[in-house]
Design a protein around this nucleic acid. Sequence first.
DNA 1: GAAACCATTTAACAAATGATAAAAAAGAAA
DNA 2: TTTCTTTTTTATCATTTGTTAAATGGTTTC
Lengths: 193, 193
Amino acid sequence: MITNKSMELNQIIDNIYPLTATSKNRIKESITETKLSKGHILFKANKIETSIYFIKKGIARAYAYSDDNEITFWFGKEGDPIVSMQNYVNNKKGYEDVELLEDCELYELKTEKLQKLFLEDIQIANWGRKFSELELIKSEERLIALQFNTATERYLALLKNYPSIIQRVQLSHIASYLGITQVSLSRIRAKVK
Amino acid sequence: MITNKSMELNQIIDNIYPLTATSKNRIKESITETKLSKGHILFKANKIETSIYFIKKGIARAYAYSDDNEITFWFGKEGDPIVSMQNYVNNKKGYEDVELLEDCELYELKTEKLQKLFLEDIQIANWGRKFSELELIKSEERLIALQFNTATERYLALLKNYPSIIQRVQLSHIASYLGITQVSLSRIRAKVK
DNA sequence: GAAACCATTTAACAAATGATAAAAAAGAAA
DNA sequence: TTTCTTTTTTATCATTTGTTAAATGGTTTC
């Protein structure tokens, strides 16, 4: 079992956008810590979620269904936010499940409280702005990779940029994340070795 | 030649996030209008851009190079923002060119002015937050489509959701947008008819 | 209209991926 | 260990997509 360093709340908040102590405390006051075990379904599709999370320790994946088979489209590790964007942005039901792939320690932040802080504290509003901007950059990078690179290239990139994910997650999830079947990923792995 | 309705500035700003008249005017004071002709390269890869734009009238595309061939990864039409995200978010050089595909009327907003407003006006900070959130939703939808759907399904979805793009843009750009070759798109079109 | 140019389609073959099933390997449980 | 279960790999064949080149169709220019 590979262990990864846990990520402290201060660092997570600061990495997004620097805040004064006052504003930072306002966010921290709205955050609670929870431990949940491997296999726990954190978000359920077609439900309104009331929280977003940050991963202190552990990994998770988001997946949705296409016909019968589930497709993983996101992995999160220590420091990453767990957000159902349709919930967070538009108060709509999400289309994804989020499953914890290891025992996790999470920071939970009630969306409602955060939305209130956005309207009261300009620093937190900018923190929230930066949060979405950074997620947008990640999403765009992902998009470009899917559109520009072959499955083999995407696999090698994942191997290079997120070696921990590959070691900690089963290949069927990685295959669907890469947009290919598990059989196809196996072939790629055999060729690359 | 298909003509589309032009999109007024007030509507563009309001569609993102409702603002008081004062805050809205602050944004509007920072915006200038320009007309640029078809073929104009608005953003150049590996350059720091100092503005973002909104399309009043016309269409545009963003593309980047993979080896020799250019790949279109974004289309914009009336009402859409034109932003080089790496420039806007991280002040880094972008990797994309943006080309105007028709004669265009654009609203130009200097990034520096906007960043200043973010720090001074909480309403505008939240407007900027919402702006990125909405772009993030679009990006995620795009990502899901690429990962979940076949080329044929993506083509049909584009046909359904953005009929104007298909009528106004040449097929080679659409093919690369869909992540396939032009030949492959031709085959799909022949089959679908 | 003819010539030149560009976009789109079609054809032929190669390469990559999907689908299904079976075998091998790895883990978990008794 | 041995058994059972799950994950991963391998094999086979069908389908899709890529590559290259040629043919068709449409526009522009002279």
